[in-house]
Nucleic acid binder design. Structure first.
Lengths: 333, 333
DNA sequence: TTGTAAGCGTTATCAC
DNA sequence: GTGATAACGCTTACAA
């Protein structure tokens, strides 16, 4: 591997000058610039990253910390992150965590060792205070998605759950339906809580009574959707005319449960999901679209901006959602 | 940020000794070990990665190069890679590429600058020779999936396309069907070619005439499946009894096309896919299961093994597939 | 077992 | 505009 010295030797120039043309920092004669560039090419010289990091005190790398990925959601976010990083000529050091302990470990090894200039993370497991302590101000950090408490402590990029949910409800209202089953996530989940608020808001804004809606709590999973919907159907409770599931998987689970009882969608019941994942597309499920790539992109750009910003007030970016209509809410009546 | 020197100062020991306990390299008295460890904790010392890389000539990092990810396939592979890396206490530097140029750029910046000790990549765009030139023996490299020519030039981890496809055909034979439509990928695609060979093999092994099968070439996409299947249906060609699509998306596309013509699966036609993605699960599609995580895991372990191996002969690891039966091939007849 | 000291390959601050 | 030279924070022979 050729080093900077080899380039110096070949050109008869100093390390300073060669370094300058590499970094396009200070002005250099066009003539010497060319000499250096030629020598670099000829020697197939590529600057050593470790040396740059050590001397320059920056890694040109963004750390990405995700929960162990198992769905399309995170991939899309990752694409957005990658795009932003590419635009800024930065690299991505990615790490996935399985549990609290793994996450702590990961944060430290990325934040405290100078591997990254900044971190973008999805934190489902640690409190703000814990993260704060671990990072210890070593690098700026941007959170994707709110944890319940994430408020003014960090930069946060989240989605507009409230208006998204409201749009779903309003969509059903327009079909003449207000007798809706809300298939929610766990009640201590931030997203679920916000979506529930949004739904309520839509009822109120339309001058309707929110008690017309039935609330059924589930797990944000396909299996959860099947299980809780089946229980509901078996309970003999009066059937609503539509379901608004707080994510696509639960929606698909609910549809599966309906199918098992001989009910079809949209003939017997309209269904709306949330997230607008690939699954929704293929299943013909009307869903609230969440621009996952945008989230990653915005979060990363914010993280990049924070690198050279010593002091700043944490900001919150909210990405807007929209409704994608498909067969599951096509009402012929 | 505390440095090694701070730890030395605090303990009165030399950098060599402190470094030894950090790296658990040479023996150190249990007593001094404890002293150092305590000092490290107290100072909240974390070794600087750049300095380690520079002095130690290794990055403890695996490079991961993927085509821009847009499906569940790559995510699973990534999880496998992450698991293997975690077990070896290595980090992951990931990069996605959009096109040939991007890929070239990416390879160089990961390989030539000492950022990574080894690389795992999925290469759909460059010839072996091109990759070879770019890497220039800077780091070992493991390919995931064959490109047509990838033969003896690189370590390769691929899947058993042949037996997978044969299993799909045999499954249909068992249902009493040999009049099958093969919905293939592009003919210059390595996977597609192998799968076609596997299908043929199954016919021959069963003593059947391969000409009983119809071959319909498509694009490995949902849209491709819809388009080509629709064309086929419109052409008035005699309908086969089953479809074996060379991936799940095309299978779903074909099913969509059938549905549009009033045909249902599995009543009117059995369908088998390939990949066994999440889509297949929710769609109730029988599919050939590909253990994507295993692929990533194996590839990464191989990549790690190669780090300290100066000379070796490229090896090929083939991961086995299996058939997952679902509703799309449930024959009541 | 522990210490000394020479790098590792850059960047950056000075002078010139 | 260009050149010395001192960091940057660690690893690792080689000595002791």
């Amino acid at each position: 591997m050729a080093t900077l010295y080899d380039v110096c030797k070949k050109t008869g120039l100093s390390t300073a000058t060669v370094s300058r043309v590499i970094n396009e920092s200070t002005a250099v004669t066009e003539k010497t610039r060319k000499i250096v560039l030629d020598a670099m090419k000829e020697l197939d010289y590529h600057p050593n990253q470790a040396a740059r990091m050590l001397a320059g005190k920056k890694s040109d790398t963004i750390g990405v910390i995700f929960p162990e990925i198992d769905n399309g959601f995170y991939v899309q976010v990752l694409r957005g992150i990658d795009n932003a990083a590419k635009e800024a000529n930065l690299h991505l050091l990615t790490a996935f965590y399985h549990d609290k302990t793994g996450l702590k470990h990961t944060i430290q090894s990325l934040a405290a060792r100078g591997r990254t200039d900044s971190i973008v993370m999805i934190n489902n497991d640690l409190s703000d205070r814990q993260v704060k302590t671990l990072v210890n101000n070593a690098v700026p950090i941007v959170m994707i998605g709110h944890s319940a408490e994430t408020s003014a402590s960090f930069d946060v990029v989240g989605i507009d759950n409230t208006n998204g949910a409201a749009a779903a409800i309003t969509h059903l209202f327009k079909k003449g339906i207000s007798d809706i089953l809300l298939l929610t996530g766990p009640s201590d989940n931030f997203d679920s809580t916000q979506r529930l608020n949004g739904a309520k808001m839509a009822y109120e804004d339309a001058g309707k009574d929110f008690s017309e809606a039935t609330i059924l709590e589930s797990f944000f999973t396909y299996e959860g959707g099947i299980q809780h919907m089946t229980e509901f159907l078996d309970s003999g409770s009066p059937l609503p005319q539509a379901i608004f599931a707080f994510n696509d998987r639960m929606a698909l689970g609910a549809i599966e449960a309906l199918k098992a009882k001989g009910k079809t969608v949209p003939e017997d019941m309209l269904v709306v999901g949330f997230d607008d994942t690939e699954l929704a597309l293929y299943a013909g499920l009307t869903s609230i679209h969440v621009p996952m790539q945008d989230i990653g992109y915005e979060a990363t750009n914010l993280a990049i901006r924070r690198i050279d910003q010593k002091k700043y007030n944490p900001s919150t970016i909210t990405v807007t959602t929209s409704l994608t209509e498909r067969k599951s809410t096509e009402k012929s009546a």
